[in-house]
Design a protein around this nucleic acid. Structure first.
Length: 192
DNA sequence: CCCTAGATTTACT
DNA sequence: GTAAATCTAGGGC
């Protein structure tokens, strides 16, 4: 028996909305990564919105640089940055049309497919800690500077797909690990 | 469980 | 020069 699996991807317009709104709507969606012939995927459980003006915590706040240029580029693409001398973090470029820059940091997820591969990439960490942090997720899913600017609206080596519709309550909190604009509650998560 | 220190590179001041 | 959208190991409780 041959099954045809239909994978639905959010449209480009999905990402052309307010960054915080997209951050909430990404909860429950899937990150799919093809590594050679293997596939790994996770369901997004925690996100954070980073805007442009009026958001001193955003990489885009002080204008465009070589590092953050993806935040000013086409929505629906990947913004991957390197930090703390050893970690990569994965963002999805998203903003309303009248805003110049914005991205959603993917902070945590739930492992879905390819768990064995992710365990190897994560030095055999416990399943509950495979992708429960922004740099853990990129490590498990082999996301680094090579994925900078990748179009997440196409079924390539890295993309976002719609997940199972969920009714989980969305909790909002202050963003993690920042010192500026610490009062803004642009961190969103769903439990398990 | 909690907490702290150290890793290690880049980009911008 | 230094701060950075982080993680891990190690020690204490």
């Amino acid at each position: 028996m041959i099954y045809t699996l239909t994978i639905k991807l959010p449209s480009r317009e999905f990402y052309a909305r307010d960054t915080a709104t997209v951050a909430k709507d990404l909860l429950g969606m899937k990150i799919v990564r093809k590594i050679g012939s293997a596939v790994v995927s996770c369901t997004i459980t925690e996100t954070e919105a980073y805007k442009h003006m009026k958001d001193p915590a955003s990489h885009a706040y002080s204008g465009m640089t070589k590092r953050n240029s993806a935040m000013f580029g086409e929505v629906g693409r990947a913004y991957v940055y390197f930090t703390y001398g050893m970690h990569h973090c994965f963002n999805v470029v998203a903003r309303s049309p009248r805003v110049k820059a914005g991205a959603v940091l993917i902070r945590a997820a739930r492992p879905d497919l390819g768990i064995k591969i992710m365990e190897e990439n994560r030095k055999n960490a416990k399943i509950s800690e495979l992708v429960n942090g922004p740099a853990k997720l990129t490590q498990a899913m082999c996301i680094d500077a090579n994925q900078y600017g990748v179009d997440l609206c196409r079924t390539g080596s890295l993309f976002i797909a719609e997940g199972i519709r969920h009714r989980a309550k969305i909790l909002s909190s202050t963003r993690i690990g920042i010192s500026k604009a610490a009062e803004k509650r642009w961190n969103y998560r769903i439990s398990v």
